[in-house]
Write a protein that binds this DNA or RNA. Structure first.
Lengths: 352, 352
DNA sequence: CTTTGTTGCACAATCGATGGTGCAAGAACT
DNA sequence: AGTTCTTGCACCATCGATTGTGCAACAAAG
């Protein structure tokens, strides 16, 4: 009906139609009108007009003037993985709940790319940045700091901004203990039967390994160095580590701990090249949860990090604007084999 | 060293320092300076200054003036799933490759939320919108159209904008045929042995079902209606469908086709409540690929949609600014059981 | 009837970049 | 020397909102 042809209505359009000034229209539509002592009736009238003309504010103009964009960023290593994608899903729900707009980007665990990505987000004047699993949190801190951008670390800690991370030490212990207890007392695990694959020299890996080694010593009475193979985070390197092991030993370890589902995917690649029988009597623990992985043909014990808990804490820390580099540990959850947990997907309304 | 204390440098700052006018600085830094006949030397000088002061343009101001933001949107149903998260990953690479900024959001397969999300993106003046798996593509079309926003549909077609979708009919046939051929000739599948679970009344499901039924008739000589159970896309409804089936029949079908990995997750929930033996001699086909699902304790044949191919096509269509609602079919790939394909993750550099 | 307050709004500067237009200085040409 | 180009840039309006300030009009107080 209206002349709402192609271009969006602005406060100036509404100003002309309503006979009020642009500033009045602006105040009414952004909620500051009481402070400006604008009559209820005027406000009412303008609000109706806005609705009728489907007015929505131009966020760029708003942002330019107020230097707040309404954008909240989440920087991930990658999307394509259950842990990070559920982080994205949960993050989005939080941000939308606050009336802001989520913007999720990945930076491939590359310090340079991390910084450039952050710069790029900053050029859009994002209001806050959640840094998840960054390789170089302190480098990112500098970039953010210089731009006056509030930020917290998630999953991997930095030394200059608050960090919310999984309790990797405890998680490592829980998972390792669960692996060990999976074996009956009559054919118990020897220290050299239990390996750890994956991870690199980051805080998370180190803590998990610390937990792994400690509990091995406690429960198995030993903890040889050669049982630790840090392969980095690439699936292919992980596969090659398993191939090498297999070639060397003629078999797989009776049990092993994989540092993440991405490393576990490397093991899948190994599996693809070997027959079913290779994987009997084997127990795997994985520091990540993936529902399909939980049902593989051998017992897979998993750790599910408390994504909801971590993000809730992260938003809380962000609000209180603490800039002290405290570290908050969030306890993860042990997931028994053959377990299908519910997740963010279950929030979907399923209409047909 | 410089006074680059807290606030970012603007063209005005550089203008003062360089002695050139803001418009000259602007032209130099945005590349239009040749058109404006600015001396090479001047340009050089200003570029150096910009670098020294770490100048980056304020995208909001740019966007406000030019009504182009450099943001490119991808609207997904959900993040938390291998198909969509790999869509996000690939999308991001494309967009970044074009020097733009990706913005990926999900809308839970809810038509209302889809529209509101699009409106919200529009208020940021995004330049293009890729609509993936939308429940109501035509509703979204209207919203975009009204704002003059270029858009294409992916995964689920609309009737008013170009669409790039998986060849669901062919994929349905391929997958069904592969399931059937998994059974040896001496104990072949009967028509009533092969079911289909999941999906709703959308284009993708309909086409897959059409392929499923046709090939059943061709190869098995029959195709009873009761073998189709459309359960929607929620894991829980899918689980309940399997529970009901199991209670009714006292067993599972010898083989079934699940419409998506999300429905497959519903089956996992069923599995969690039943012992291993329940799942012997069973074959599953799933219209989606997940590496872990491929290694479950029974043969799982999967379809991998050609995410890279679909997006490449989508960007191409977007560029050519076709607005005719053509439908482009992209052939998916059949994935044999126990297969670990490489994906976007493999592009990561893995440094340690 | 003046003085002092309050109410309700309009005006105009501003955020940082873009792009049309104008204009001086020097070159080229007659 | 006078006219016409060309070169190289400066000026200024503009995008759509926000916000500090000013000021009528009317009410209340003295």
């Amino acid at each position: 009906m209206k002349e709402n042809g192609r271009k969006k209505a602005t406060i100036y359009d509404l100003s002309l139609i309503s006979g009020s000034s642009p500033s009045t229209v602006s105040a009414v539509l952004n909620g500051t009108w009481r402070k400006r002592r604008i009559k209820e009736a005027t406000a009412e009238f303008i609000r109706d007009l806005a609705e009728k003309h489907q007015y929505t504010a131009n966020r760029q103009a708003q942002g330019l003037r107020s230097s707040r964009s309404g954008l909240v960023g989440l920087l991930l290593p990658v999307h394509d993985n259950r842990y990070f994608s559920s982080m994205a899903q949960t993050f989005e729900a939080h941000v939308r709940g606050m009336g802001q707009c989520p913007i999720v980007v990945s930076a491939s665990r590359d310090p340079q790319e991390e910084r450039e990505t952050a710069e790029s987000l900053i050029s859009y004047s994002i209001d806050e940045l959640f840094i998840c699993g960054a390789t170089d949190p302190d480098g990112l801190h500098e970039v953010c700091e210089k731009a006056g951008l509030k930020h917290v670390n998630i999953d991997l800690p930095g030394t200059k901004a608050p960090s919310i991370i999984s309790d990797n030490y405890e998680g490592g212990r829980m998972l390792t203990e669960a692996i060990i207890r999976q074996f009956p007392a009559d054919r118990p695990l020897a220290p050299s039967d239990l390996y750890l694959f994956g991870g690199r020299n980051d805080h998370a890996s180190r803590e998990r390994i610390r937990g792994f080694r400690e509990i091995k010593r406690e429960l198995l009475g030993g903890d040889p160095d050669f049982c630790i193979e840090t392969t980095g985070y690439s699936p292919n390197n992980t596969r090659m580590a398993f191939e090498a092991f297999y070639k060397r030993e003629g078999r797989l370890p009776r049990a092993f701990f994989v540092n993440s589902s991405i490393n576990f995917e490397g093991f899948l690649r190994f599996m693809a090249g070997h027959p079913h029988e290779t994987f009997r009597d084997m127990v795997v623990g994985c520091y990540d949860y993936d529902p399909f992985a939980s049902f593989l043909p051998f017992p897979v014990i998993m750790i599910r990090q408390d994504v909801e808990g971590m993000l809730t804490k992260a938003f809380e820390v962000m609000q209180h604007a603490r800039t002290t580099p405290d570290i908050h540990l969030i306890r993860p959850e042990l997931v028994a084999p053959r377990t299908a947990l519910t997740g963010p997907l279950d929030a979907l309304k399923d209409i047909d």
